[in-house]
């Protein structure tokens, strides 16, 4: 049984077909990169998977269970957690309190939740900021906080929406290591990412979206050399010049 099974998923906003007949499958433990030009429908796909949007048609199955019609908090309790592209910390709560909200998904006890939150903060390297209001963090720290909150919900599948955007090379390197560590613990990952080196490095497989449609799927090497992908990114005239 695959972990995530998406079949013929479609979503339209007025005249815009944001996601069109999308089918995807993920295995347990896999890292799948979801790439494509801006406006290709990647974030819409995330919102559909995580219950923030309802699909017009199609099916989403997670560990054999249909997610269509479930609320985001129910999907989170099933083990699928998303992060947001534009990070959304709770600005007036401390970093620890932010992460504790996620930890409460698995326990009703404040002590257990706080202990779990501290553990996650240690893991992402934010424990020194535990008592700082989240609104005072730098962008790189906010990205790690976003990751920490999602991790605290103890997901089976983590949907990361551009956690590296806007980070320096050194910060990107650290977050790549962090994500690799998360996957090594058995958490499956679905990444939306524009930082190509990172996504090529991390992903076992890559799926490419363009105009809401899946145009290519395969290993990083296969996808990088696919003329349809190069065309989508660079335009038609470069498609023929791709290296073998």
């Amino acid at each position: 049984m695959s972990l995530l099974e998406v079949r013929a998923l479609s979503k339209r906003f007025g005249g815009l077909q944001a996601v069109s007949d999308l089918s995807l499958s993920m295995a347990e433990g896999e890292v799948l990169g979801l790439i494509g030009p801006n406006g290709a429908g990647k974030t819409t796909a995330f919102s559909l998977f995580s219950g923030f949007l309802a699909p017009d048609s199609g099916e989403i199955e997670f560990r054999g269970r249909s997610l269509v019609g479930l609320r985001p908090h129910q999907i989170c309790h099933l083990g699928l957690t998303r992060t947001f592209q534009i990070v959304r910390p709770f600005p007036h709560l401390s970093v620890l309190e932010n992460v504790r909200v996620g930890a409460f998904a698995r326990t009703a006890s404040s002590q257990t939740a706080a202990a779990r939150a501290r553990q996650v903060l240690h893991e992402v390297g934010l424990e020194a900021k535990a008592d700082v209001p989240a609104g005072e963090l730098t962008l790189a720290e906010r990205k790690r906080l976003e990751l920490a909150r999602a991790l605290a919900t103890e997901p089976v599948l983590l949907l990361l929406d551009e956690v590296m955007a806007g980070l320096s090379a050194a910060e990107t390197e650290r977050i790549v290591e962090l994500i690799r560590g998360i996957n090594a613990r058995g958490v499956s990952l679905l990444l939306i990412e524009h930082v190509m080196r990172a996504v090529m490095n991390l992903s076992h497989r890559i799926a490419v979206l363009n105009y809401g449609q899946l145009i290519a799927e395969g290993t990083p090497a296969q996808v990088a050399n696919d003329p349809r992908v190069i065309e989508a990114y660079l335009g038609e005239e470069y498609a023929g010049t791709a290296p073998g």
């Binding site: 957690t81 709770f90 996620g102 409460f104 999602a150």
Partner: peptide, 11 residues
């Protein structure tokens, strides 16, 4: 603070 973000975390 942020209702949508809270829902994503299981609230």
């Amino acid at each position: 603070e942020d209702e949508d973000a809270s829902e994503a975390l299981g609230v």
